[in-house]
Design a protein around this nucleic acid. Sequence first.
DNA 1: AGGCTTTTCGGGAGCGCTCCCACGCACCCT
DNA 2: AGGGTGCGTGGGAGCGCTCCCGAAAAGCCT
Lengths: 350, 350
Amino acid sequence: MNANSSRPGTPGAGRPSPTLENLASAAGVSRSTASRAINGGSKVSAKAQAAVDAAIVALGYTPNRAARSLVTRRAGSVALVIPEPDARVMMDPYFAAVITGVNEALRGTDLQLVLLMSRAGDDSARTLRYLRGGHVDGAIVVSHHRADDWVETLGATGLPTVFIGRPWDTGAGIPYVDLDNFEGGRLAARHLASLGRTTLASVAGPTDMTAAVDRLDGWLQGLKDAGLQPGPVIHGDFTTTGGAAAAGRLLAQAPGVDGIFAASDLMALGVVDALRGTGRRVPEDVAVVGFDNHAIQASNGLGLTTVAHPMVDMASAAGQLLVSAIGSPGEHMDPVVYPAELVVRASTVP
Amino acid sequence: MNANSSRPGTPGAGRPSPTLENLASAAGVSRSTASRAINGGSKVSAKAQAAVDAAIVALGYTPNRAARSLVTRRAGSVALVIPEPDARVMMDPYFAAVITGVNEALRGTDLQLVLLMSRAGDDSARTLRYLRGGHVDGAIVVSHHRADDWVETLGATGLPTVFIGRPWDTGAGIPYVDLDNFEGGRLAARHLASLGRTTLASVAGPTDMTAAVDRLDGWLQGLKDAGLQPGPVIHGDFTTTGGAAAAGRLLAQAPGVDGIFAASDLMALGVVDALRGTGRRVPEDVAVVGFDNHAIQASNGLGLTTVAHPMVDMASAAGQLLVSAIGSPGEHMDPVVYPAELVVRASTVP
DNA sequence: AGGCTTTTCGGGAGCGCTCCCACGCACCCT
DNA sequence: AGGGTGCGTGGGAGCGCTCCCGAAAAGCCT
């Protein structure tokens, strides 16, 4: 037995891949019949279908995407647009979840995921040119900051588009997938109130993101429902260190706080660390509620009470929405809003 | 001023984009000349070039990628292959860094990034078919586990390929970008030894990853160099919880340990938590060294001594390597190995 | 100035595929 | 038995582009 017995004949040459014509003659049918057999198989006799199928395997035939695209005017790919500075992508588990979910939705279709990460200004024009250039059949935009004007711009191009996270401007009627962030905030407030906590504060997210604003609005509404005075609100940046810093300022403002709602699990972890740093016990002295139910919540040993945010599922739903939007263009699609659910753990209930 | 004054003429219709022929007649030249003017501009008179350039702007012309691909046999895209179960992608910051870096390298070229995440078995065949089907001009493979046989398989196809992380089988001569993990492990050992620590243990990574094995080998070599007895080695899975669990077992084996090297920052955080959970102080009782210098190391307030691992830069280097491999196929390219550097913080030096 | 090379240009062909249309054949209805 | 009505099939055209090659224009030499 020789170890390298399976060396190919012409190294590096890469034999030309078989064409549809090759396939057809190998199967003993015409190019047209072969094409029909490959796509959907309607109006093809069982015999011809079988012959083509066999030939595909025998020749290792793969249709040439470029040729197909040229005539069908379909690119066979969708773009995932992430309009964020790269550094942010690094830390936030959100994007990994989005990629995973969208990818999941695309599995089974023959659509490929093209990643479009665009930084500030100039680059976003490039991205836009690419999108409207017909190079993709649709786009999923991770909608985040108020400044991005993707909505109106993309809305005008007619390119099937789905947003993940409610965009600021929903007027264009572009479909989106979102979590009921308002209800999530309300649940957090109600939960803390039901535990008898009365001095409640929040480490909120950036004010230019709909998700952060909704969570805060819900939180305040929940406090009002419970008949509680709203405590201080500090805006963080959704990161752990940002959460810790916000907690520090918060404690300076309201040393007697006994319940904190952090608008993300990452920030909640920072908050817990900061609290412990001051000698406070969680949850005995201060109960903490996070947001996202991200796996990382378990990382400091303390189970974190949090609002579930099924990011992968939501991204997958966005992918499916896009696929069906591509399938039936022009049809109106309603937004999909996932309900919020509270997951109670040791950071509020010992 | 009417708010919706900029509505396009035919909503949803999407006017047909101009073809090269349109462009040529608008510029008053032939299709061929227009084509030449667009690609490289050699053998085109200044006058013709200017006319074409003007027409491009006037018409908003974008070349049809599919048509171009069909004749040039270049896809205009590269694949990023991530052969991991999706769940893993979620937690590990590594992949976000890879995506960021590769994307950075591709900026400036007209290559697009196509994401190929393939799960176990069946799916990997699909991925492979896609890669060898000529749908991309090259591939970057995040090489991780021993089981993946991408190396030999891709090596045979002749598709330009670069690995991130040294693959198990380097025989095929496929270029890769890696960190000097061995040296990183050795630095950790030397550092702890130089602090007078004598009972040293390691929470290593999975044994089927070259990075984990190299770090461990370097660690053991460093201990030998310092004349120290190697302490227990527990294998974790590069996650925080895995690190905490490993630390628990490690303390059972060697309660008197005064220095621990964790093969990733995530695991190091788990280790620190576990140590504190037993009442041990870091670094007074036990010094801890991590690996990666990931931003998350700051998350628990304690600065973590760690080995720098410039993942974004490395991924970017891999992207550049791939671009040049596509430019000059068949040419041999040497692996790129980044040096390891120790970053000393409070987890070892108070 | 005549013949030469060099430079610029335009038309034709064809990449691999899908779609349209027309043709043949089996089948069923009256 | 004759004329439908299907379904299955094959050939032709053409998607938008690049490349090849021959023609035209411009430059150079002796």
